[in-house]
Design a protein around this nucleic acid. Structure first.
Lengths: 214, 214
DNA sequence: GAATGTGAATTTATTCACAGCA
DNA sequence: TGCTGTGAATAAATTCACATTC
């Protein structure tokens, strides 16, 4: 039986780590490994073993003392914790270089994320096709979301358009956004926004590279 | 005079925040704003004002008590802290969907990151051109890096190839890597690796979306 | 008076260390 | 004996609160 979890009691940093564990566990399963200890897993992903056990402990008890974890069971448990037992419908807003690259990427569907629509504001790309049916006008977004469930928006518009675009997505009922535009956006607090920010990652590297002020 | 900073005394989370401040400050400058307080800036990016001041304090004193910060001065200071006063040479390894999208993206050069080469292992794409000269074979990487400085590698190869690719980049003398492959890679400790992980971001969203176990 | 810069207090996250169970 | 699960201890990050300076 699925234990009821208070999500606010789960540290924010635990969730991306669960995704990492899941990935490694699937790799182990593919190699035919059936059992693993927190110590082994920790070594494989360069982490403290207690960290892994504590991360699991927010959700339940998945292992056997003295033995370890059964790989398949752990995969199932983590997938359930992450909400991956169902499929989530995704739209991409912004059919530029990045948006179209994401649309053609097959990795999402493998994880249970299904691209159901693609939107742009430019007449130049509306009607084109990139693996998710034709590109629609953002003006149709609200109507589209009314006709079918849309859970997540990937926003790949230019920075100056991001806030307006996300306002529109939220108005259409979307409550989860992955924002690739390099700008902090404001949303109602029941909307989850994650930022993917390449220039900030590059700056992180340049900060550490810069040996001048070491 | 540039103060000498011990980078290990700067919290890891401070660095990406500096990138955020820089972005907002440039926006303010573009709008003609000449002065800003930590309180104002905090409001604009939804942060605590003391956080901002503390972040700056690791690097020096950039403001004037009772007055605030001069926007241009602050931009210059942060850019210097982040190592952005010089240009960094970047290569992209992996000329797939994402790699070619990144190669065509103009945002990098605006920030002082210059794409100087692109590599792939597949004969199908070697020789093609995407805005950084022709795609070279990864076999040429070491030779290429010997002939010119390469500071950063963006790695956009499939997961199974990522560790080998990064080993190769490190052998060629590259010490900073932005890894888009969904796998944890191991490197010598003087090499900085940052991970950009879309599927983990999507899982973060699905975790919070999943109202079943709220 | 107003806003910075920073120790002190608080909160959050990580790691230790061991009781408890197979 | 071996490894989990978890309180207690430690470390790291954030926020408070105020002395300091313009």
């Amino acid at each position: 039986m699925a234990r009821r979890i208070d999500k606010s009691s789960v540290p924010a940093v635990t969730v991306p780590r669960l995704a990492t564990y899941l990935r490694k566990l699937r790799e182990l399963r593919a190699r035919g490994v059936e059992r693993v200890s927190s110590k082994d897993l920790a070594q494989m992903i360069d982490l403290n073993a207690a960290q892994i056990r504590k991360d699991f402990s927010y959700f339940g008890e998945f292992g056997t003392r003295g033995v370890g974890y059964e790989v398949q069971r752990l995969i199932d448990e983590i997938a359930r914790c992450l909400g991956l037992e169902r499929t989530w419908n995704v739209v991409i807003i912004g059919a530029g270089l990045l948006g179209t690259a994401l649309a053609r990427y097959r990795g999402f569907s493998e994880q249970g994320f299904r691209l159901v629509g693609m939107f742009d504001s430019s007449a130049r790309v509306i009607g084109a096709s990139y693996g998710a049916g034709r590109v629609r006008s953002v003006a149709e977004l609200e109507e589209f979301c009314a006709a079918q469930t849309v859970d997540i928006a990937l926003v790949t518009v230019p920075a100056h358009a991001a806030q307006g675009t996300i306002d529109r997505a939220v108005a259409a009922g979307i409550t989860a956004v992955l924002n690739f535009a390099p700008i902090k956006v404001f949303t109602p607090k029941d909307v989850i926004v994650r930022q993917v920010d390449l220039s900030s990652e590059l700056m992180f590297l340049s900060f550490h590279l810069d040996r001048g002020s070491d």
